[in-house]
Each structure stands twice: as structure tokens, then as C-alpha cells.
Amino acid sequence: MKVAVMGAGAVGCYYGGMLARAGHEVVLIARPQHVEAIERDGLRLQTQHFDERVRVAASTEASAAHGAQLVLFCVKSTDTDSAAQALAPHLERDALLLSLQNGVENAGRLRELLPHEAAAAVVYVAAEMAGPGHVKHNGRGELVIEPSTKSDEVARAFVQAHVPTDISDNVRGALWAKLVLNCAYNALSAITQLPYGRLVQGEGITRAMRDVVDECLAVAKADDVTIPGDVDAAVQRIAETMPNQFSSTAQDLARGRTSEIDHLNGLIVRRGEALGVPTPANRLLHALVKTIESKGR
């Protein structure tokens, strides 16, 4: 299978690298410094089980997606519209776009923007770009994808590449479950610039996270979203399984970049307002992150 990764940061490089390592034809569409390093030395894929250089194509241009049967759509939620427009002239008619993004609205937005099949995936991975062309995997890595015309083929490819993958009829609920985790951890990790393991040891932090989660669950209930599994156990498990991981929001703020907070705690605030559900804890975290962003700029 030919696979294009649009927005090959940590998430895109990890999953694209795993597919390339399994023998698929993969092209990473990434920032110039990553493309230069990958073209020169290959993608360094450093996981908990191996540290290898994977030979994979790389480009800064969306046109590199030409001929791809599968496009892993990994750009920030804030860049969904512009990235979709850049890809549009280069997509094969039967290409599947698989959104590996934070938030709950991106796959729907892709379906509005492009006349191609788009499906959502829920991503559970701790990864970071440790340098140009160097992705470091810190934990987990499983995917949950929604049914599509190619879901069986895509799931099989990921599983054969040692990426645990399930197909679910309730990806909306799974996306919300991931959203709750992000709302609980991302902003607090960003504000404190602490990894998850140290963050939860802070005085009053777990209680504050409890308030955030309760608001998220109240909004989900009002929005007729069925969240699978034990949310409280999942929240606790994040700090246990990814103790050294900084949130993507923390990494964005540390680099002076705009974060996805509008699509995380900000989404809870907006949906809460629309549904008449108060969300003061999420509102405060959203406001603080936005203020830090503006200070950095």
C-alpha cells in the first residue's frame, strides 16, 4: 500500500515509520528540517523496543501524496482546512483520509471540504520529535478506527506493522473518551511544564482534574455521546503508563507555537454554552493557555 502522511510530526512519523518498516511505500510530508534529515539519514525511529533508521521518502510538498491509497492526516486541528485544500488537487479518487488528530470534529470537517472518504481514528501514543528526523516513542501506540471501505485492509496493515488496531462502531464515543483525557492533562501539563507523572503529584491537581473530567462528562451526556469504558481508570492510567510524557500542548507552548487548546478544553466550553452546561474549570484552563500563548507571541 502507498501511504502519505500529511503533517508528519511525532504522531505521523511514528505511524508512518512503523508502516514503512513493515514494507509499505510511505512518504512523509513534513517541515523542511525533518525532510532534510530524513532524506540524508533516514527516519530515526526510537521506540521502547528498538532504535533503527528507517528508509522512507519525505517531502515538504502536498503533491507527494499523489498515488497514495491511504493518507494519514496528522496536522494540528488548527491547520485542518489549509492542509485539506493543499492536498485536494493531488488525491486519488479512491484515497482514504484517516484523521489521526486531536479533537472530535476533524473527520467531519474533512468530509465537508473534500469529495473523498474520510474516517476518524483515536490515537493512544506518547511520542515526541527528539530532533530533526528523529521520533522518540515513549509509550503505548494503539489505534481505534471507524468503519470505512478500507478499514479492514488498513487495520490489517497496522496490525502487521505491530500497531494494535481495532475497528469500532462508536469512534465518536472513543474520540470523546480521548478528548476527556486531553482536557484533564494537556492544559495542566502546559501551564506547569511538567510531565504527567510529576504533574499528578502536585497538591490539589487530581482534585482539579476531577472537576475538569466531571464537566466533560456532563457536556457529553447533554450531547448524547456514549463514552465507552471506565473514564476514571483511563485518566489514572495515563500518568501510570506515560509518566515522562509532556502533553502536546506543553510542547507547543515551550516552542512558542499555537496549540490546539481551542479544540480541547475550548470545545468543551463551546459545547457547554450551547447545551446549557456550566464548565468553569475548563474555561479557566482554556483562558490560561490562551494567555500564555499570547505572551509567547
Rank of each mutant, 00 (worst) to 15 (best):
L72P: 06
G103Y: 12
D79I: 04
V104I: 15
L175Y: 05
H116F: 07
G103V: 08
I167L: 04
G173M: 00
F73I: 01
H134P: 01
P115S: 07
V144G: 00
L143D: 11
H137V: 10
V135G: 05
L175T: 10
G103M: 13
V144Y: 07
P132K: 11
F158D: 04
A107M: 09
L143H: 10
V163K: 06
Y124P: 04
H162N: 15
V123G: 00
M129K: 12
L113Y: 02
L114Y: 02
Q101W: 13
V171I: 11
P164H: 09
V154D: 09
A107F: 06
L179F: 04
P89Y: 01
D152K: 13
H116Y: 03
I145F: 06
E146C: 08
Q101F: 12
H137W: 10
G139L: 12
V125M: 01
Q101M: 15
D79Y: 05
V135Y: 05
R140C: 02
V123Y: 02
T80N: 04
Q160N: 14
L181G: 07
A121Y: 04
T80A: 06
H134N: 01
A161T: 05
K178L: 03
L70Q: 10
L110D: 03
A84D: 02
A83I: 07
A127M: 06
V123S: 02
A95N: 14
N102H: 09
R111N: 09
A161W: 06
Q160R: 14
H134D: 09
T149D: 12
L70E: 11
K136Y: 12
A155M: 12
V122C: 03
H116G: 06
